[in-house]
Write a protein that binds this DNA or RNA. Sequence first.
DNA 1: ACGCCCGCCTGTAAGC
DNA 2: TGCTTACAGGCGGGCG
Length: 277
Amino acid sequence: MPELPEVETIRRGLEREVVGKRIKTVQVTGTRTIRRQTKKVFITKLEGAKVTHVERRGKYLVLKLDTGELLVIHLRMSGQLLRAQAKDAVVKHTHVVFTFTQGGQLRFVDPRTFGELFVTAPDELTKEITELADLGMDPVDEPISWVKFREKLLSRTTKLKPLLMDQSFLAGLGNIYSDEILWEAGLRHDRVPQTLSTMEIRRLYRAIVEVLHEAVKHRGSTLADEGYVDLHGRPGEFQLLHQAYDREGQACRRCRTQIVREKVGQRSTFYCPNCQI
DNA sequence: ACGCCCGCCTGTAAGC
DNA sequence: TGCTTACAGGCGGGCG
């Protein structure tokens, strides 16, 4: 479900709501959510620890603990982190509940159970998650250098959409935002970097930065299934500004041509067949 | 070394 | 109405 803007929104929520708090107890009820270590080890490493920082690495959330270890969270397709009070009803598919010494809880809810949590030492992180060992530039965290972007783009032969979704090229993009970026740039998903003019590369570069900043500003995209909500259960608003994703049959806001939907490597791809070239 | 395709799950919506 | 099928924000692994 969540891509960079959604994970970043959650990260900011955690920064306000969870950093500085000490974990009193951890309850693990899910059977698949903790899979890199035993539940017992997971719980032991967390109880009594204080959360001191929250970082995002691509779509991963990394919470630093005062024990020196890291709590790593990936929401995958349907994971949610929700702030709650102990008295609040526990919704279906709640797999992990953290209770803080100051009161209040953080709950991990995940119907499809693809998401996971684990605790690891900082120097083990990239061994545990090889994707993080070779993570691309972060388009929101650090301003991307135009020279580096161009160089890196031209070194790849992959088509633009799979390239944008490749976490070793850029960190944090998925199916929604790659379609939105390509619409904004006026480029087709199957273009190959070597065929792009300097102007087209510039448009792509600008689209990446602009679309993601706007999406973060509007706290991410919540689709009809409401799979993504922030820590407070609030939906995002960027879906109202989508130009391509989930707009099949609707008029392109640039040229009025109907947006088409096409399967590209099993993923739905939305684009304007007229003004994306 | 790369691209393609499946599997991992549950829930919802569309199709018959 | 009810059953069946397709599909959903991600990622790793196995295949050719």
